[in-house]
């Protein structure tokens, strides 16, 4: 029986798709059969970040409408055997996500996969609600700044009220905080909220912090999830997050400003 994980935030542009791609890849690398689904109908990005945009034939909306079967739309990742991508339509919009269709597709997916990751669009309307409806677990992607924290708080409230588990009065969705684009130097200068600030405001257990890193932009431009980049601190941090999600203990890395060598200080590189 699969675990459905929604990656959501409320706020746009904080790292949901980057996180969905990295977490799905991480879980598949660990041997779990994983599918990552793009719920951002009309503004699809997941296929780009996963590097399979040139192999999309059928999509989520085709399957919901019965125009294609699930196995015609699922794209198997070329690098990792157990990883599949389920892209969405670019020409339609969120209204195409009809409840019965999504329910049926999720039911089929649950039989085939260990983990189903739902990459949510930003916002609190139909697209985001569809993405979170079936969730067993939720990763709340938050930047350490006030608007993102406020929006994350909102989406956590909505999860507690509008998920299927909430409707059926089952055990609540497990909520995990992922703090992305974290810069310890800026926290120290008082420009950014600290981990403790965010934890105090949101009262949600911390899954991990992902440091601000140029490698993330490179990763999306090359269509390679950042967790596959051995030189990337963000990639390493995502590995830690996957480990913690699976129940392992990992020390929190990237929370302190780096000790800068003299030469680096001289040349002022970030």
């Amino acid at each position: 029986m699969a675990t459905v994980i929604v990656v959501t935030s409320g706020k746009g542009g904080v790292g949901k798709t980057t996180t969905s791609a990295a977490m799905a890849t991480g879980l598949a690398l660990r041997g779990h059969k994983t599918v990552v689904i793009d719920f951002d109908v009309g503004l699809r990005n997941l296929d780009l970040v996963m590097g399979c945009e040139r192999r999309v034939v059928f999509d989520f909306i085709n399957v919901i409408n019965g125009d294609a079967k699930l196995n015609q739309a699922l794209i198997r990742d070329k690098r990792i055997e157990k990883l599949y991508v389920f892209p969405t339509s670019q020409t339609r919009d969120k209204d195409a996500l009809r409840r019965e269709g999504v329910d049926r597709v999720m039911g089929e997916l649950r039989n085939e996969f260990d983990y189903i990751i739902c990459d949510s669009p930003a916002g609190i309307e139909h697209g985001a609600l569809s993405a979170l409806y079936h969730a067993d677990q939720a990763i709340i992607v938050t930047n350490p700044e006030v608007s993102s924290v406020r929006d994350s708080d909102r989406i956590i409230g909505i999860l507690a009220a509008k998920s299927r588990r909430a409707e059926r009065k089952e055990d609540p969705v497990g909520v995990h905080l992922l703090l992305t684009r974290y810069s310890p130097a800026r926290v120290q200068r008082g420009e950014m909220l600290s981990i403790e600030d965010v934890k105090e405001i949101l009262s949600v257990p911390l899954l991990g912090i992902i440091p601000e890193s140029e490698s993330v932009l490179r990763a999306s431009n090359t269509g390679m999830p950042v967790i596959l980049d051995p030189a990337s601190p963000a990639g390493r941090a995502y590995e830690d997050a996957v480990a913690r999600f699976l129940g392992e203990q990992r020390e929190l890395r990237f929370a302190r400003p780096e000790r800068r060598g003299f030469i680096r200080t001289l040349f002022g590189r970030a």
């Binding site: 406020r150 708080d153 409230g157 405001i201």
Partner: peptide
């Protein structure tokens, strides 16, 4: 007893409201 999240509205009709949890902005 659960955190009151941003965007949530709680109305205690004809009585008092007691919250033993954080109440978010909004």
């Amino acid at each position: 007893t659960q955190p009151v999240r941003s965007g949530t509205q709680i109305y205690a009709k004809n009585g008092d409201l007691v919250v033993v949890a954080p109440v978010s902005a909004g």
